[in-house]
Amino acid sequence: MDLSKFFKNALLVMLACLVLSACATKKVQNQMQGDVYTGTDTVEYLASGVPDRVFFATNESVLTTASRDTLRKQAEWLRKNSKINVVLEGHADERGTREYNLALGERRANAAKDYLMTYGISGNRISVISYGKERPVDSGSNPLAWSKNRRSVTVKAN
């Protein structure tokens, strides 16, 4: 009885360890899907539950499901706070030529702008600026850092 209880506890501890370690590895993997950043390390919040940024795949400006979800939250927040205007700052990673990256950052910020507009936010409230590869949030030269830098960030303008 005692012995079986001991084994049972040991088993539980082992299981717990397995689950924890699985969680640990899962967390690292879960920061990227394909090469799109899905973590929250760099994310700030415009309001509770309203993330300020969306992430993109290399050379892409297509909004992912998660990005659209974030932007719908931003649209809802903007509807509630109708006096707030925003600037969408588009960025690229360092693995491209400077001039193309400026255009790419502009395209990314506009993809976010278009989505906010389809959710009823007036284009007059949104301005756009591209920083290309000039303002990385993570200065590392590795795929995870680059994924954090391929972003469009919504910033309060007033």
């Binding site: 255009a103 502009e106 506009n110 993809a111 702008k113 600026i129 591209s130």
Partner: peptide
Amino acid sequence: PGMTFAPRFSPDGKKIIMSFAMDGNS
């Protein structure tokens, strides 16, 4: 009314050629 970038002069120096980005298109 938007970002202009990637400028260069024409060979005679009389023109500037560059990109202009509008609504996500350059």
